[in-house]
Design a protein around this nucleic acid. Structure first.
Lengths: 402, 402
DNA sequence: ATGACTTAGTTCGAGCCGTGATTTAACCTG
DNA sequence: CAGGTTAAATCACGGCTCGAACTAAGTCAT
């Protein structure tokens, strides 16, 4: 426990280098003068550190700003082509790999369907390995690292081990197994966390530093960002929003408990609840295999008159209420600047349910924290998990400055 | 936004000095060799920095460890008598001031009853000011600062302003008003947070760095400690545990919403629920003005046979269930290393309810986070708020190293 | 065109800091 | 009391940031 921190003068340089690099990465082309103002370093130090960064090829000049009577400032920017990164979304139905430049612009994407459609550990590793080979072959710059977003709790001990209760992974030694197939640095994190990271860097969380991301898919998860960094519990399993209790002795959840939020607002649960409501109302419920299609069917049905529409509307109404209460709990307890709803089911539901959700939150949240938060939709599309995973190696670069 | 961090070599020294001081403060007398191992600094640097600390009088030698063949290591410890600190608990019924040495050993205490028994802003300021004068007069060492724990949300803009919804404080400029009466550094924070701080330093949280403290009194609050530091939301109002929703369309809460946890597990709510249950069972309910006494009465009644005992037991059973669910939510969502129950009502209830609470948590929490957490009672007594407030100036000293 | 002026960026010496090697200090054993 | 052992202080060195001096690169008035 030697308490890693800056200790000697070289660490100091590394930290300042990282500070400048980070500033340039997120705040676009900047002059040395801007950097002086932003970091509080002396002009001499900025000059020196920038020279280092230019030498290392991480930063390049990007034109000059027009002057009015003096030497013009020359702009600097991170050279986004000097490295590439790979982000992988290990989803419940398939694996998606994407290759980006350092600025997280997508260069190439690759979908790997899974044999048998299940996340069998035996199948996942070779699927990722071959995907990595294929993507790596196309790279035109050194690959900085590979970020992997997985469904489940990730523990670093020190190599990443994944506990994916819903996909049958029990202490799955993902990193160790992948190590046999690649020498690239690996970064494994929970998919909800990587998605949140992507939204914080490039999406709906760009302008705040404290937010909660809700991931509504088949189930319901969350990721908490505090002071710009993901909040992880003592064992990095924080954010299990779907399993907070919203109903005493309520519906049975797939986690085994009763009354979990997920048992009401996950897509799987919504579909099941509509099936029950339809049966009770004596309406035929077309069974659809694909969850996404089934959910859209329910949303469409709700626009119709008659008993089926009635049933769908009542199911969706309760969904809005439960989501709203779940959000109110988060607002009261964590007081985030923003709550962002994402995930395929969240994005599908929100357009019609958001006003009602906001109203429920207003009723159940305390005045002050409610007034200071906003509830919005995620701004990124379906590749947010992979993109967020790709931020992990970039984040390491920005922290280390090299 | 010049992003305060260590920048130059002097900041580096300050940081290392703080690192050593912190280590000495929390881990008792240590030799220079211990410090080398603990901090990773070179022996030369440790020697230099320790010499500084000795010169400054912050640290003194404390004997030597017996040697077996070499020069004996001499032990160092923080000189707890070189400074004193004052902690103030601004409670709903009165103000308590305590004077401590730097090691937070109590030297003197002072209770100031409030005129009219209310927290009238007009009365609070002079009460604190005169109390400070009296306590300061007895000090035998320079007073490092004054910590104040208040009931309500504290915002620093930049001087501390308190929003105490329950005591009628609306943007009360406490720090600005106190500034007119003292030149001592002031540190204002929420009382639940200061209490948690005291437990983290000297109580039930001493050996962990991530914990959630539940404060059960008349109402129910919480304080979240993550990585050793209090988690504050975007506006430092995080931790409103009492107002997470545990029952859809449930009991009306004093915050205006329905189904808040506080409407079931706060002492006020327990007493009200017992009154209802007693009335329904046709049992006489002695109305007692003092909440603490009333709660003890219910606990005693529960040990009796008959209808009254039955009613009390059912109320307490539900209380345990609700508390358990509230804790399970915290465990799932924040994954703390430890959950600590405090507050006068919590300490009163826990002895009889804790086994049942633990069982409810086990049923409602996810396996992994539940297995890695423990649920315990607070270890400090009634002065934890004042003591925790007094940690604030000490924390600043330990961070700055001077 | 040219010289005065203005601003950007670099260079240089000074002052600190941490480190490894070396020296001094303090104690034990026989 | 000498030899061995470990702790602590000292020293020389290289690295860092900083302020000041200096050079570079423009604009503007004449």
């Amino acid at each position: 426990m030697t308490d890693e921190g800056r200790r000697n003068v070289r660490d100091l340089r590394r930290a300042n280098r990282a500070r400048l690099l980070r500033r340039l990465y997120f705040h676009g082309p900047l002059s040395r003068q801007d950097l002086i103002a932003a970091t509080g370093l002396s002009s001499a130090s900025v000059s020196n550190v920038v020279a280092d960064l230019l030498d290392a090829g991480l930063v390049v000049e990007a034109g000059a700003v027009e002057s009015d009577g003096g030497r013009p400032r020359i702009l600097l920017r991170v050279d986004t082509s000097c490295f590439e990164v790979i982000g992988i979304d290990v989803g419940e139905t398939g694996i998606r790999l994407e290759r980006f430049d350092l600025g997280l612009n997508e260069l190439e994407a690759l979908d790997v369907p899974l044999r048998g459609g299940s996340l069998d550990p035996e199948a996942v590793i070779p699927a990722i390995a071959t995907g990595l080979d294929e993507l790596g072959a196309g790279a035109e710059a050194p690959v900085l690292g590979v970020g992997i977003g997985v469904p489940g709790i990730v523990q670093h001990q020190p190599l990443a081990v994944v506990h994916g209760q819903t996909v049958g992974w029990d202490a799955f030694p993902l990193e160790e197994l992948l190590r046999e197939h690649t020498t690239l640095p690996l970064f494994v994190d929970n998919g909800a966390t990587t998605m949140a990271q992507a939204e914080m860097w490039f999406g709906a969380g760009r302008d705040v530093d404290s937010a909660v991301f809700l991931l509504l898919g088949s189930g319901a998860g969350a990721s908490v960002i505090a002071d710009g960094a993901p909040f992880r519990g003592s064992t990095t399993s924080a954010g299990e929003w779907g399993h907070i209790n919203v109903q005493y002795q309520g519906r049975r959840c797939r986690c085994g408990a009763r009354g979990c939020l997920e048992a009401y607002v996950g897509a799987e649960a919504i579909i099941a609840r509509y099936a029950e409501a339809a049966a009770a109302a004596g309406v035929a419920d077309d069974v659809v295999a694909d969850e996404e299609e089934a959910l859209r069917g329910i949303l469409a049905t709700a626009d119709q008159a008659g008993a089926a529409g009635e049933a769908a509307r009542s199911v969706l109404d309760e969904t809005a209420v439960r989501i709203g209460i779940g959000i109110a709990n988060v607002v009261n307890f964590l007081n985030p600047q923003r709550v962002i709803i994402g995930g395929w089911a969240g994005l599908a539901l929100a357009p019609s349910l958001l006003p009602q959700i906001r109203e429920v939150v207003r009723e159940h949240a305390l005045r002050l924290p409610y007034a200071l938060t906003s509830i919005d939709l995620g701004a990124l599309g379906a590749d947010a998990v992979a993109r967020g995973a790709a931020t992990l190696p970039v984040a390491r670069l920005l922290e280390a400055g090299s």
